[in-house]
């Protein structure tokens, strides 16, 4: 379980406070743009260090751990695939920086099949559609096999139908693999669709996650302001 304990972050002209435990299987971080949702992901992933406080996973502090050593995988808004490598080579990087063994190749092919890209391994990213690229990136994240998967505004380049389909796929694959998900989104309907818990980020503060149903049924004032209701 992820816990942000008494976190504060001071950046130039910016201030963020977070104190929360994430107990849901699929948690969405929502809030206006610029509120600091992605910054929170960056701290959890290890790209940014909080000014004060601790980030814990299963009561173990993550401070000082390099991004690759943390129990998280992350799907970025873009630049998820190296354009000069084939899809299979991109996926292989989740397992090794050397030449993949036959066993690893098998896992890569299995992951590709899981996301419906069974025979696309030899292609370069540019030869794939946007949706296919998203699937390939998702396959790579699955291969990393970390207990927490983080999504930063995922699939925002895709159309609504395709995005909904991808979100369902993420939710299903994560559930199958027993992986918790933390998703940053600016779209409340995404959160309603797949998240069991929702946390609001607004006014330089992270509000603790609550059950999605309950939250949207009776929104607190901050959420009201954001939703405009």
């Amino acid at each position: 379980m992820l816990e942000l304990r008494d976190i504060t972050l001071h950046l130039e002209g910016y201030h963020l406070a977070a104190n929360a435990e994430f107990k849901g299987r699929f948690t969405a971080l929502i809030g206006p743009s610029g509120a600091g949702k992605s910054t929170i992901l960056s701290m959890i992933a290890g790209f940014l260090s909080p000014s004060r406080g601790q980030i814990l996973w299963d009561n173990r502090p993550l401070d000082g751990l390099a991004p690759a050593k943390r129990p998280v995988s992350i799907l970025f808004q873009d630049n998820n695939l190296f354009p000069h490598l084939t899809i299979a080579a991109n996926l292989a990087l989740a397992l090794t920086t050397k030449r993949p063994t036959p066993a690893q190749m098998e896992r890569i092919n299995a992951a590709l099949a899981q996301v419906g890209l069974a025979d696309m391994g030899t292609r370069k990213p540019a030869a794939l559609s946007g949706g296919q690229q998203s699937r390939a990136a998702l396959a790579r994240v699955l291969l990393q096999d970390r207990p927490l998967m983080m999504l930063d505004e995922p699939f925002s380049a895709l159309g609504p139908a395709l995005r909904a389909e991808m979100l369902d796929l993420v939710a299903q694959l994560a559930a199958d693999a027993g992986i918790a998900v933390l998703m940053v989104s600016h779209a409340p309907e995404d959160a309603k669709r797949v998240a069991d818990q929702v946390a609001l980020v607004a006014d330089g503060q992270l509000f603790p996650p609550q059950s999605t149903d309950r939250l949207f049924a009776d929104p607190p004032p901050e959420l009201r302001a954001y939703l405009g209701v």
């Binding site: 991004p67 690759a68 050593k69 992350i74 970025f76 990087l93 990393q144």
Partner: peptide
């Protein structure tokens, strides 16, 4: 960042 999360 992608490289960092992959431990490259």
């Amino acid at each position: 960042r992608l490289a960092a999360t992959l431990g490259i």
